[in-house]
Amino acid sequence: MNIIVCVSHVPDTTTRINVGADKKSMDPAGVKFILNPYDEFAVEEALRLRDKFKGEVTAISVGADNAKEAIRQALAMGADKGILVKGDKSDSFQVADMLAAAIKPLSPDLILLGKQSIDFDGMEIASMLSELLDLPAATVAVALNIEGNKATVEKEVEGGRETIQLDMPCIVAAQKGLNEPRYPSLPNIMKAKQKPIQEVSGAPGAKRTEIVEMTKPEKKRANKIVKIDGNASQAAHELARMLHEEAKII
């Protein structure tokens, strides 16, 4: 089975993000990057399927040079080779367009990816790839079973689960719960260095979105404990006064 996994290089969930000087991008200084957590489920699933059906897992990423780290992480988990498509990844359609162009000639049996990347959180790539490659897609997958040329996917829907069947080749976007991703073992981390990463330049169509401005969420206000003397009625009056005059929220 020829499996493609799309991986994204994203800021660590615990890292502190600052907006860059242009107010349209993230300031990368001091930011720790990781393999997108949802993509880890995709990589794990790909490795399990490869071990079951034989074949090859190719990890592909769109981004700058440092996106190779995400590919390398997938290789350290056990993927066989990598492709870095060099390009800007701020517009979902461009990313999908560049991915589709790189994936198409490889004619994979299965394309796996995380349901979303935790940087831009667009949740659009799986559906866009489906359209661009003319392949069926299942999003938010929590179980995947392949028999013959059919893929059965259990996916989360509002308030429950839905089981759908897709013809292969197809696209499956992983949700947490699909599996328990492995840790890359130290020998595999060392071997990852020897695995090939092919670099290509992306040539996407025009952008469909433009980042106008990035801002940080407003700081949470400090909590305050106030002591109010008097009985319940007096306390309620005083509290109402403070909320009105000091906090100015009523």
Partner: peptide, 12 residues
């Protein structure tokens, strides 16, 4: 890069 990955893996 390997030392990073090793450190992060063990940390995780």
């Amino acid at each position: 890069e390997e030392q990073h990955m090793i450190r992060d893996t063990v940390r995780n």
